Amino acid sequence: MSFRRFSCFLYMLCPFIVQAVTKDITCPASCECETIFGAKEVDCYNLTDFPSNIPEDTNYLDLSGCNIFHIPIQPLEKLFKLQRFAFQEINTNEDNYNLRALNLPLLNEIVVDGGVSTSIPQLLPPYISTLSVAENNLGTLKSGSFRNYPNLDSLFLSDCMLTKLESGVLDDIPSLSLLQFNDNNLNEDSFPLDVFKKNQALESVSFFDNELKHVVSNLPSSVTSVDYSGNAIFELRAYDFKSTPKLIYLSSTKYGMKITVM
């Protein structure tokens, strides 16, 4: 393609690029506001108080770069188009962000990564479908942790120092389809035999970078994808997958080592 034709192509493309990413001149101080392919995103940094004048048509709000000790519910209630809300969980006192009464029909995802919590937060909106609680210090995932979130279909528990799951801990979220345990300290003894019995909608599970020496043999029959990469699994046996007849994707290498299928 000649330079002139390429220039012409870029000229024709510019309106679409501008339409895909645009800046918002009404953005609150210390925040960045962009509209990306029709979705309005607001990212804030270094704030100690909840930002004022957030655009009411915001779709994604991220306060993870802030040091806010109290998240009031009143200004959030005005964000009628909010779909995803991320904030860094900086305090174990959940009263600082009691969002159970928040009524936003489009809000489906909450991200509370990077905190000091030793348990799953219980004061988030009960209707959310996606929850990420990565980079916390959970240790043991206790029974009843998800009783307030019956609609969860995606759960991210990466880098939470997890060593064990209690029996029944996943019973309250039967619609769960995606589960991620990446970067923890889980082994095959960390999972009670009945821990997945109520999760017959589960399709994708990731155990990336844990301490497994054998595969988890009691996954539900609905599972189609499993990632065991980064574990110490050196052989796979045919009966290891007896419970997952629909499995179509399996990743099971450690540092490039080839696994022998028996």
Rank of each mutant, 00 (worst) to 15 (best):
F3K: 11
R5M: 13
R5N: 12
F9L: 15
L10A: 06
Y11D: 07
M12T: 12
A20L: 10
T22Q: 15
T22R: 15
A29L: 09
C31A: 01
E34I: 01
V42Y: 12
C44Q: 04
Y45N: 02
Y45K: 06
L47S: 02
D49G: 10
F50V: 02
F50M: 03
P55H: 05
N59G: 06
Y60P: 02
D62V: 06
S64K: 10
E77H: 12
K78E: 15
K78W: 08
R84I: 15
R84M: 11
F85K: 07
E94W: 08
N98Q: 08
L99A: 09
R100A: 11
L107E: 01
N108E: 04
D113Y: 10
T118W: 00
I120D: 02
P121C: 06
I128A: 03
T130D: 13
L131A: 07
S132T: 13
E135Y: 13
N137A: 11
L138M: 13
G139P: 02
G139W: 07
G139S: 08
S145K: 05
F146I: 08
N148V: 04
N151K: 12
D153Q: 04
D153W: 09
S154T: 04
F156I: 14
L157F: 06
M161Y: 15
M161P: 03
L162V: 09
E166V: 06
G168H: 04
V169L: 06
L170F: 11
D172S: 13
I173W: 10
L178E: 09
N182Q: 08
N184V: 03
D189W: 14
S190G: 08
S190F: 03
L193M: 08
V195Q: 05
L202E: 03
V205I: 12
S206D: 05
D209S: 10
K213Q: 10
H214E: 13
V216L: 03
L219T: 06
T224V: 13
S225W: 05
V226T: 07
Y228P: 01
G230I: 03
L236R: 05
Y239H: 14
S243C: 00
S252R: 00
S252M: 01
Y255T: 03
Y255A: 08
G256Y: 01
K258L: 08
M262G: 13
